[in-house]
């Protein structure tokens, strides 16, 4: 018993209270910023270095849905035009908003008016998700599991991952969606009662990622459904996941809500 108390004392309080205002280490590669610096003519180094075809030139854009947040383009650019900041707010509810360019640089990629009304009115206070890995390598799964640990503690916000799709309000998909898994994915989705949301977590599930072009994956499912939230990253940081879902759920004052949860 004394041992247990000692362990508890050493454990202390480990939870990140303010998940919105938390700062990650400056080395963390989060939301990229494209600086207003003139590229050398005919330089295509960043585009060539990109392993997933996330970069387009003239003008330079980075598609966060494809980006694996690897260090290549930032490293190879001699004029430091691309800068991956430690901002973890890379999530969006709109696929096009994930394409970053020099001009549209805001703190949040969420487009408020495109959020479905019923998400906030029906699911805004409690959201139960069923996660399905359809070719997910285990990276996104690690970080999703991490959202539930004592550091991030996603369940204090009324967000939980449940065992049965019948208990769920939405589907969270990881992985590029393999052909072998496509049927099971569809069955799971159909078993979730309406209204339901779909979240794509990780570069693979948003665009196929590094597996784009493989004949073993089948991305029909994502084309036929309406996606409510994209969580870019490889894998997305737990704070990206938590903040993305919180932003989707709560209309405003959700900072107060978090503070109240601890009072």
């Amino acid at each position: 018993m004394i041992d247990v108390l000692k362990i508890l004392k050493n454990q202390g309080y480990q939870t990140i209270n303010d998940v919105i205002g938390a700062k990650l280490h400056e080395k963390f590669r989060g939301l990229p910023v494209i600086k207003n610096i003139e590229c050398k003519e005919e330089c295509t180094k960043c585009m060539d270095a990109c392993g997933t075809g996330a970069i387009n030139l003239k003008p330079l854009t980075i598609d966060l849905g494809k980006c694996t947040f690897c260090p290549e383009c930032e490293y190879i650019c001699k004029i430091k035009k691309i800068d991956f900041t430690n901002n973890f707010n890379t999530y969006s509810n709109d696929r096009d908003a994930l394409i970053i360019n020099e001009k549209n640089q805001t703190d949040s990629l969420i487009i408020e008016e495109k959020i479905r009304k019923e998400i906030r009115s029906v699911l805004g206070r409690s959201l139960k998700l069923r996660q399905v890995s359809a070719g997910g390598c285990g990276g996104c799964e690690l970080e999703l599991n991490a959202t539930g640990n004592v550091n991030f503690d996603i369940s204090r916000f009324g967000i939980d991952f449940v065992a049965s799709p019948r208990h769920a309000d939405g589907l969270l998909i990881t992985g590029p969606i393999t052909k072998n898994m496509s049927k099971a994915l569809e069955i799971t989705f159909n078993a979730i009662p309406e209204p339901k949301i779909i979240i794509l977590c990780g570069a693979c599930s948003i665009s196929g990622g590094i597996f784009d072009g493989s004949n073993a994956i089948d991305r029909k499912f994502t084309k036929n459904v309406r996606v409510d939230l994209y969580l870019p990253g490889c894998p997305p940081h737990p704070l990206t996941i938590i903040n993305g879902i919180l932003k989707l759920m709560h209309k405003q004052n959700f900072k107060n809500y978090i503070n109240n949860a601890h009072s």
């Binding site: 359809a134 590029p176 072998n180 898994m181 597996f211 493989s214 073993a216």
Partner: peptide
């Protein structure tokens, strides 16, 4: 179920 064709 997780087969993504890695070797190819």
């Amino acid at each position: 179920y997780q087969h993504r064709g890695v070797e190819k």
